[in-house]
Design a protein around this nucleic acid. Sequence first.
DNA 1: AGTTAAACCTGGTTGC
DNA 2: TGCAACCAGGTTTAAC
Length: 276
Amino acid sequence: MPELPEVEVTRRGIDMPLRGATVRAVRMGKPLRWPLGCEPDSLLGGRVGPVQRRGKYLWLPLALTEGADSGLLLHLGMSGSLSLMTAAPEAGAHDHFDLVTTQGTLRLNDPRRFGAVVWSPALHLPPAAKLLARLGPEPFDAALTSARFLAALKQRSAPIKTVLLGGQAVVGAGNIYACEALFQAGIHPALRSDRISRPRAEKLLAAVRSTLTRALDLGGSTLRDFSDAHGVSGAYQAEAAVYARAGLSCHRCGGTVRRVVQAQRSTFFCPGCQRR
DNA sequence: AGTTAAACCTGGTTGC
DNA sequence: TGCAACCAGGTTTAAC
């Protein structure tokens, strides 16, 4: 589920409430994608700092000593969500990580367990640095110009949809928002990335940005499991133009939205509105 | 080297 | 009703 908007909405929900909190207990459930990388009890007494986001990862600074840069790198995978509770109920079957602090319990619920919580001595050191190494630029970074975006697209011959999902040209757009941005830009998902024109690349970058912004404003998308740190669902899915709308009519041209598979992922698009 | 498949895991939905 | 097949927000690793 969680693409950039959902992860950012989650970050905003836990950042201020957790700031300055002290870790009182750590509870682990079933294994996640990667091991924690430290003794859970070694986190006790850690002080929580400002929560940051990089791509679809969250960085929770957890200083064990004054001035330390260590922390936890979190990923929500496909089905993960974080909730911050003052009085946490008993852990359920899919609650795989609890960080009990003086300012509430941060709990990761993740049925499919593609998510991760990994301790790292610093954001710029392994293992965090290694996991973030291949990420492209942030979509709202002013340094990401349309020229730079175009240059990145020119380096790939794979379909534009697949390249968007890859996150090398820009991070943050997952399956929902990659489909929606391509629709908004009027670009066929099968178009070769390196065949895209300069004006279309510019239009696509703008579409990625506006799609992610709109989703952020609506609290993200909730297909099944996602909710923010306070249990509130997203609302973007209700206004998706193409995503999960195969066989339905396009609200722009009246044609029929199609579903195809690219790189093992469903792609939804409108053949009338999106051209090669 | 670069693109595509397989893998990780659980559960909901669909169709016979 | 039962059960098999397919589908789902992601990303790494292995294989063409």
